[in-house]
Simulated assay, not measured.
Amino acid sequence: MDNVNKSVEVGSTVNITATVEPSEADQAVTFSTSDTSIATVSGAGVITGVATGTATIAVASKVKSTVKADVTITVTDSE
């Protein structure tokens, strides 16, 4: 993971990038959010802030689901 904590404003987007180790391993991952009312995430790792609050984005290997990491997303008001 490139970073385990990110912030984004409501209505804005931020990308997260994930790599699976070792580098020879299949790099396909899935992204999911703990709370779609706070933040959504696309299959490409693009996170959109929906409302203020905190959500967890889970990133997991498509090949081995036990290989995973979480990213904490804090969504703030746009000013």
Rank of each mutant, 00 (worst) to 15 (best):
N5S: 06
N15K: 14
G49W: 13
P22V: 09
N5H: 08
A69C: 04
V10T: 11
K62Y: 10
T40G: 12
V14D: 10
F31I: 05
K62C: 08
F31E: 02
S42E: 04
N15Y: 02
S23W: 13
S7V: 11
N5G: 06
A28L: 11
V14M: 04
V50I: 15
T52H: 09
A44Q: 15
A25M: 05
A69G: 11
T19H: 02
D35K: 07
D35A: 13
V46W: 04
D70A: 06
T33Q: 04
V75K: 09
S7G: 12
T17H: 08
A39T: 12
T56L: 09
V59K: 00
I47R: 05
S65M: 05
V41F: 01
K64S: 05
S12Q: 14
V41P: 01
K68W: 02
S78G: 15
V67Y: 08
I47V: 14
T56R: 01
T56Q: 11
S37R: 01
T54F: 11
D35I: 01
A25C: 02
K6D: 06
G45K: 11
E21H: 05
T76Y: 08
V59T: 03
D77E: 15
A55C: 13
S34T: 08
T74A: 14
V63W: 05
V50W: 02
G11I: 02
T40A: 10
T54D: 15
S34N: 08
N15W: 01
E21C: 04
V59F: 01
E9M: 07
I57F: 00
D2T: 13
A39I: 03
M1L: 10
G45L: 09
K62H: 07
T54I: 14
I73A: 04
Q27D: 13
N5L: 07
A51N: 15
V50D: 04
A69L: 07
D70Y: 01
G53K: 08
V20D: 07
T36M: 11
I57H: 00
T72E: 08
V29N: 06
A44T: 15
A39N: 07
D70N: 11
A39S: 12
P22Q: 12
E9N: 15
A39R: 07
F31M: 06
T36S: 13
I47P: 01
K68P: 00
I73R: 03
G45P: 10
S61R: 02
S7H: 14
E79C: 06
D70H: 05
S32H: 10
S32D: 14
E21P: 00
I16L: 02
G45Q: 11
S23I: 10
N3R: 06
V20P: 04
N5Y: 09
T36C: 01
I57D: 01
F31Q: 04
V71A: 02
A51G: 09
V14I: 14
S23M: 11
T72I: 11
F31Y: 10
T30W: 00
V41G: 02
S7P: 07
V4R: 03
E79K: 10
A69V: 12
K68N: 12
S78I: 03
G43N: 14
V63S: 15
